[in-house]
Design a binder for these strands. Sequence first.
DNA 1: ACCTGAACACCGTTCAAGT
DNA 2: ACCTGAACACCGTTCAAGT
Lengths: 228, 228
Amino acid sequence: MVNKTANPPRREDSLTRDRIIEAAIALLDDSGEAGLTFRALSVRLATGPGAIYWHIADKSDLLTAACDAVVARTLAPAAAGATPEAAIRAIALGLFDAIDAHPWVGSALMRAPEQLPLVRIVERIGQQLQALEVPDDDQWTAGSALSSYILGVSGQNAANAHMARQQGLDRTVFLHEVAMTWSQLDPGEYPYTRRIAARLPHHDDRVDFLAGIDLILGGLDAKRRRAR
Amino acid sequence: MVNKTANPPRREDSLTRDRIIEAAIALLDDSGEAGLTFRALSVRLATGPGAIYWHIADKSDLLTAACDAVVARTLAPAAAGATPEAAIRAIALGLFDAIDAHPWVGSALMRAPEQLPLVRIVERIGQQLQALEVPDDDQWTAGSALSSYILGVSGQNAANAHMARQQGLDRTVFLHEVAMTWSQLDPGEYPYTRRIAARLPHHDDRVDFLAGIDLILGGLDAKRRRAR
DNA sequence: ACCTGAACACCGTTCAAGT
DNA sequence: ACCTGAACACCGTTCAAGT
């Protein structure tokens, strides 16, 4: 074991991994994944691009770390006392709102399933499935279904918001334009899409999102009843 | 209306949008999203980078078009005669395999929910929900749940495969390494993840994937029974 | 109408040199 | 131990000039 000296006292504003990650989050929130640049980051931190590499391995490391910071914060408040179902709904809604606020988190989570940020999510959901007394064999399936659903719907909601903002449009106006495009698709090939297009701008995302969670939980419950 | 002349006869090897898209797919399959470069593409097509811009708006247009070509091919065989549930399973499994073969499709689909490739998927699933006589109000929820689940699980499966290949490892060896890392997480904080780590390398992805589809379909069925 | 390829304004990353 | 900033090997995209 290397005899490492204890951390020396730091200047208040010295460069640290945490300060870099916070600056990265701010940059990502401001201008999306394209806005995260080692040059922009070094300007914001009043340093050179090379300095960042002393604390961060590379860009992918930085993005994962930023993602993990957001996820960890979101999952921090433990849902105490509530039923497992309510806890799952709370976890899901917390992530939905976090991804809505930080759209880049959605796509970042999707890329490296074995990394810590997603493991945190799977763990939290898994604990609740355990509390629900879901049989061991079904926990993996139910956990995958729930986490994929959460990431998928939240990510798509955030992508819509991001797209709207990028075009300088209000979210509702943007959805109206999408609905317009969809309603002009070929009637023979796209009957379903044309029909739901009208609903698109009016639906309440969070309500519909929770309805999907309940659908999966309902499937789990039905399966358990059948097994009895 | 502009009086446009009919398409003139083409040289066999002239540059067309379709030829560019096929070359892009080959490049993406070979070396992932990072491998798709206008320079590499122009070398493959024996032309200059500028020529591509005559047929393609920009890189995002190219990626969406490549994605759409793969999705359209995958959804092409219409599941005739089968029950709606079986049709949904067939659609899901087809996409799972397509995303496994073309890992970049997963992340590409996630980014622009309003674009044609995802609309194709939603339409196909929606038609089967209609055939299942799912009430109008539930079709959106069920469609979102199914499509998010399909894209999420397929995308994560493909990301694992991609990660393994990148590290020059066999898929199973890679999953064993992930399982090892997970089983060394803090026991107080990650009890669930530690427990399922052991199952990770042995599970059959396609079987587990279909089990999740059935879970969602089961939830839909349970909800219908309750409404009666 | 379609293609060429140099040029522009960027990237991530490295590394000798400093403190 | 940590930081600087020039340099390298790339990008996507544009555009005058060609056919």
